[in-house]
Amino acid sequence: MIDVAGLSKRFGEVTAVKDVSFEAQDGRVTGLLGPNGAGKSTTLRILYGLLRPDAGRVRVDGVDVVADPRGAQRHIGVLPDNHGLYPRLTAREHILYFGRLQGVAEDKLGERADELIRLLDMSGIADRRTEGFSQGERMKVCLARAMVHDPRNIILDEPTNGLDVMTTRRVRELIGELRRRGIAVLFSSHLMHEVARLCDHIVIISEGIVVAAGTTESISEAAGEPNLEDAFVKLVETVLP
Protein backbone atom coordinates (compact mmCIF):
# COMPACT_ATOMS: atom_id res chain seq x y z
CA MET A 1 0.00 0.00 0.00
CA ILE A 2 1.22 3.48 -0.90
CA ASP A 3 0.02 6.35 1.22
CA VAL A 4 0.67 9.89 -0.05
CA ALA A 5 -0.12 12.98 2.02
CA GLY A 6 0.34 16.66 1.23
CA LEU A 7 3.12 16.23 -1.31
CA SER A 8 4.68 19.41 -2.76
CA LYS A 9 7.68 19.86 -5.00
CA ARG A 10 9.19 22.95 -6.61
CA PHE A 11 11.86 23.20 -9.30
CA GLY A 12 13.22 26.71 -8.94
CA GLU A 13 10.32 29.03 -9.62
CA VAL A 14 8.01 26.32 -10.94
CA THR A 15 5.70 24.44 -8.63
CA ALA A 16 5.45 20.98 -10.16
CA VAL A 17 3.35 19.29 -7.49
CA LYS A 18 1.21 21.00 -4.88
CA ASP A 19 -0.39 19.33 -1.87
CA VAL A 20 -1.06 16.00 -3.53
CA SER A 21 -2.67 13.30 -1.40
CA PHE A 22 -4.03 9.87 -2.33
CA GLU A 23 -3.81 6.20 -1.53
CA ALA A 24 -2.99 3.16 -3.63
CA GLN A 25 -4.44 0.20 -1.79
CA ASP A 26 -3.48 -3.45 -1.97
CA GLY A 27 -5.31 -5.53 -4.56
CA ARG A 28 -6.52 -2.42 -6.34
CA VAL A 29 -5.47 -0.61 -9.47
CA THR A 30 -5.06 3.11 -8.93
CA GLY A 31 -4.77 5.37 -11.96
CA LEU A 32 -3.03 8.72 -11.98
CA LEU A 33 -4.68 10.53 -14.83
CA GLY A 34 -3.62 13.91 -16.17
CA PRO A 35 -2.55 15.79 -19.26
CA ASN A 36 1.12 15.97 -20.27
CA GLY A 37 3.12 18.07 -17.83
CA ALA A 38 0.52 17.80 -15.08
CA GLY A 39 3.08 16.52 -12.55
CA LYS A 40 2.44 12.79 -12.85
CA SER A 41 6.06 11.74 -13.36
CA THR A 42 7.28 14.12 -10.68
CA THR A 43 4.78 12.67 -8.20
CA LEU A 44 5.80 9.12 -9.04
CA ARG A 45 9.52 9.96 -8.78
CA ILE A 46 8.92 11.22 -5.27
CA LEU A 47 7.07 7.98 -4.44
CA TYR A 48 9.97 5.79 -5.46
CA GLY A 49 12.55 7.93 -3.73
CA LEU A 50 14.31 9.58 -6.64
CA LEU A 51 13.17 13.11 -5.80
CA ARG A 52 12.82 14.60 -2.35
CA PRO A 53 9.55 16.41 -1.70
CA ASP A 54 9.63 19.93 -0.29
CA ALA A 55 6.67 19.05 1.89
CA GLY A 56 4.44 16.08 2.64
CA ARG A 57 5.18 12.43 3.24
CA VAL A 58 4.97 9.09 1.47
CA ARG A 59 4.68 5.70 3.11
CA VAL A 60 5.13 2.44 1.25
CA ASP A 61 3.89 -0.47 3.35
CA GLY A 62 4.55 1.71 6.36
CA VAL A 63 8.12 2.69 5.39
CA ASP A 64 8.72 6.44 5.09
CA VAL A 65 10.27 7.12 1.67
CA VAL A 66 11.98 10.37 2.68
CA ALA A 67 13.52 8.97 5.86
CA ASP A 68 14.45 5.56 4.41
CA PRO A 69 14.41 5.63 0.60
CA ARG A 70 16.41 2.39 0.22
CA GLY A 71 14.09 0.57 2.60
CA ALA A 72 11.01 1.78 0.72
CA GLN A 73 12.54 0.87 -2.66
CA ARG A 74 12.68 -2.78 -1.61
CA HIS A 75 8.88 -2.78 -1.44
CA ILE A 76 8.30 -1.17 -4.84
CA GLY A 77 8.71 -2.35 -8.40
CA VAL A 78 9.01 0.54 -10.80
CA LEU A 79 8.67 1.06 -14.51
CA PRO A 80 9.97 4.62 -14.72
CA ASP A 81 9.43 7.20 -17.42
CA ASN A 82 13.03 6.68 -18.56
CA HIS A 83 13.28 2.98 -19.19
CA GLY A 84 16.40 2.43 -21.23
CA LEU A 85 18.09 -0.94 -21.56
CA TYR A 86 21.71 -2.01 -21.92
CA PRO A 87 22.04 -2.97 -25.60
CA ARG A 88 24.86 -5.45 -25.00
CA LEU A 89 23.13 -7.42 -22.24
CA THR A 90 20.53 -10.10 -22.88
CA ALA A 91 16.99 -9.88 -21.56
CA ARG A 92 17.78 -12.47 -18.89
CA GLU A 93 20.95 -10.63 -17.84
CA HIS A 94 18.85 -7.52 -17.26
CA ILE A 95 16.55 -9.45 -14.95
CA LEU A 96 19.47 -11.03 -13.09
CA TYR A 97 21.33 -7.71 -12.69
CA PHE A 98 18.32 -5.96 -11.21
CA GLY A 99 17.48 -8.97 -9.07
CA ARG A 100 20.96 -8.90 -7.55
CA LEU A 101 20.77 -5.14 -6.97
CA GLN A 102 17.44 -5.71 -5.21
CA GLY A 103 19.11 -8.29 -3.00
CA VAL A 104 17.30 -11.37 -4.32
CA ALA A 105 19.09 -14.49 -3.07
CA GLU A 106 21.32 -16.03 -5.74
CA ASP A 107 19.78 -19.52 -5.38
CA LYS A 108 16.26 -18.20 -5.99
CA LEU A 109 17.19 -15.71 -8.70
CA GLY A 110 17.39 -18.13 -11.66
CA GLU A 111 14.02 -19.60 -10.83
CA ARG A 112 12.46 -16.15 -10.46
CA ALA A 113 13.86 -15.07 -13.84
CA ASP A 114 12.40 -18.16 -15.50
CA GLU A 115 9.04 -17.44 -13.91
CA LEU A 116 8.99 -13.85 -15.20
CA ILE A 117 10.09 -14.95 -18.66
CA ARG A 118 7.14 -17.34 -18.72
CA LEU A 119 4.70 -14.82 -17.28
CA LEU A 120 5.63 -12.17 -19.85
CA ASP A 121 5.81 -14.68 -22.70
CA MET A 122 9.39 -13.80 -23.62
CA SER A 123 11.16 -17.14 -23.77
CA GLY A 124 11.99 -16.54 -27.43
CA ILE A 125 13.99 -13.41 -26.68
CA ALA A 126 15.29 -14.17 -23.18
CA ASP A 127 18.84 -14.95 -24.23
CA ARG A 128 19.20 -12.41 -27.01
CA ARG A 129 20.92 -9.08 -26.56
CA THR A 130 18.38 -6.30 -26.28
CA GLU A 131 19.92 -4.31 -29.13
CA GLY A 132 17.31 -4.23 -31.89
CA PHE A 133 14.38 -5.26 -29.68
CA SER A 134 10.97 -3.93 -30.66
CA GLN A 135 9.14 -1.49 -28.36
CA GLY A 136 7.00 -4.33 -27.05
CA GLU A 137 9.97 -6.58 -26.37
CA ARG A 138 11.78 -3.76 -24.60
CA MET A 139 8.73 -3.10 -22.45
CA LYS A 140 8.59 -6.74 -21.41
CA VAL A 141 12.24 -6.63 -20.29
CA CYS A 142 11.55 -3.46 -18.31
CA LEU A 143 8.50 -4.96 -16.63
CA ALA A 144 10.35 -8.16 -15.80
CA ARG A 145 13.29 -6.36 -14.19
CA ALA A 146 10.87 -4.13 -12.25
CA MET A 147 9.15 -7.18 -10.74
CA VAL A 148 12.16 -9.42 -10.15
CA HIS A 149 12.11 -8.93 -6.35
CA ASP A 150 8.39 -9.76 -6.20
CA PRO A 151 7.35 -6.38 -4.76
CA ARG A 152 3.99 -5.82 -3.06
CA ASN A 153 3.64 -2.43 -4.76
CA ILE A 154 4.09 -1.67 -8.43
CA ILE A 155 4.38 1.76 -9.99
CA LEU A 156 4.10 2.07 -13.75
CA ASP A 157 4.74 5.41 -15.45
CA GLU A 158 2.81 5.43 -18.75
CA PRO A 159 3.23 1.70 -19.30
CA THR A 160 1.38 1.48 -22.61
CA ASN A 161 2.96 4.52 -24.22
CA GLY A 162 4.02 3.71 -27.79
CA LEU A 163 3.07 0.04 -27.64
CA ASP A 164 1.18 -1.92 -30.29
CA VAL A 165 -2.21 -3.46 -29.61
CA MET A 166 -0.87 -6.91 -28.79
CA THR A 167 1.61 -5.70 -26.19
CA THR A 168 -0.87 -3.24 -24.74
CA ARG A 169 -3.28 -6.13 -24.16
CA ARG A 170 -0.49 -8.11 -22.57
CA VAL A 171 0.26 -5.23 -20.18
CA ARG A 172 -3.44 -4.97 -19.30
CA GLU A 173 -3.60 -8.68 -18.58
CA LEU A 174 -0.53 -8.37 -16.42
CA ILE A 175 -2.06 -5.53 -14.41
CA GLY A 176 -5.17 -7.68 -13.87
CA GLU A 177 -3.01 -10.58 -12.75
CA LEU A 178 -1.11 -8.39 -10.29
CA ARG A 179 -4.37 -7.15 -8.82
CA ARG A 180 -5.59 -10.71 -8.33
CA ARG A 181 -2.44 -11.42 -6.39
CA GLY A 182 -3.29 -8.58 -4.01
CA ILE A 183 -0.59 -6.20 -5.17
CA ALA A 184 -1.08 -2.44 -5.06
CA VAL A 185 -0.78 -1.20 -8.63
CA LEU A 186 -0.35 2.49 -9.34
CA PHE A 187 -0.02 3.65 -12.89
CA SER A 188 -0.07 6.93 -14.69
CA SER A 189 -1.55 7.67 -18.07
CA HIS A 190 -2.88 10.50 -20.14
CA LEU A 191 -5.23 8.07 -21.94
CA MET A 192 -8.77 8.24 -20.66
CA HIS A 193 -10.12 4.95 -21.94
CA GLU A 194 -7.18 3.09 -20.55
CA VAL A 195 -7.68 4.43 -17.07
CA ALA A 196 -11.46 4.03 -17.21
CA ARG A 197 -11.09 0.42 -18.22
CA LEU A 198 -8.43 -0.73 -15.79
CA CYS A 199 -8.71 1.27 -12.64
CA ASP A 200 -10.66 0.73 -9.48
CA HIS A 201 -9.69 4.14 -8.24
CA ILE A 202 -8.81 7.22 -10.30
CA VAL A 203 -6.84 10.30 -9.24
CA ILE A 204 -7.05 13.18 -11.71
CA ILE A 205 -4.14 15.59 -11.53
CA SER A 206 -3.69 18.86 -13.37
CA GLU A 207 -1.16 21.67 -12.87
CA GLY A 208 0.25 19.69 -9.96
CA ILE A 209 -3.04 19.63 -8.08
CA VAL A 210 -5.42 16.73 -7.45
CA VAL A 211 -8.69 17.93 -8.98
CA ALA A 212 -10.74 14.79 -8.41
CA ALA A 213 -10.49 11.26 -7.00
CA GLY A 214 -12.79 8.29 -6.90
CA THR A 215 -14.30 5.67 -9.19
CA THR A 216 -15.23 6.37 -12.82
CA GLU A 217 -18.85 6.78 -11.79
CA SER A 218 -18.27 9.00 -8.79
CA ILE A 219 -16.00 11.32 -10.79
CA SER A 220 -18.49 11.60 -13.66
CA GLU A 221 -21.23 12.27 -11.20
CA ALA A 222 -19.31 14.93 -9.33
CA ALA A 223 -18.46 16.73 -12.57
CA GLY A 224 -22.02 16.45 -13.82
CA GLU A 225 -20.92 14.84 -17.09
CA PRO A 226 -22.10 11.40 -18.20
CA ASN A 227 -18.78 10.11 -19.53
CA LEU A 228 -15.31 10.25 -18.04
CA GLU A 229 -13.70 12.11 -20.91
CA ASP A 230 -16.04 15.06 -20.63
CA ALA A 231 -15.68 14.99 -16.87
CA PHE A 232 -11.89 14.92 -17.22
CA VAL A 233 -11.79 17.91 -19.59
CA LYS A 234 -14.14 19.88 -17.40
CA LEU A 235 -12.15 19.16 -14.23
CA VAL A 236 -8.78 19.87 -15.80
CA GLU A 237 -9.99 23.19 -17.19
CA THR A 238 -11.04 24.40 -13.75
CA VAL A 239 -7.39 24.73 -12.70
CA LEU A 240 -5.86 25.88 -15.97
CA PRO A 241 -4.53 29.45 -15.77
Binding site: L50, R70, P80, N82, G84, L101, Q102, C142, A146
Partner: peptide, 17 residues
Protein backbone atom coordinates in the same frame (compact mmCIF):
# COMPACT_ATOMS: atom_id res chain seq x y z
CA UNK B 1 26.07 6.82 -21.70
CA UNK B 2 23.66 5.68 -18.99
CA UNK B 3 21.97 9.07 -19.08
CA UNK B 4 21.73 9.19 -22.83
CA UNK B 5 20.38 5.63 -22.98
CA UNK B 6 17.91 6.58 -20.26
CA UNK B 7 18.95 3.55 -18.24
CA UNK B 8 20.19 5.56 -15.26
CA UNK B 9 16.78 6.16 -13.69
CA UNK B 10 15.88 2.44 -13.48
CA UNK B 11 19.34 1.75 -12.03
CA UNK B 12 19.01 4.39 -9.32
CA UNK B 13 15.63 3.07 -8.17
CA UNK B 14 17.31 -0.01 -6.76
CA UNK B 15 18.02 0.01 -3.01
CA UNK B 16 21.74 0.60 -3.50
CA UNK B 17 23.77 3.61 -2.40
Amino acid sequence: GERERRSLEPLLINPVE
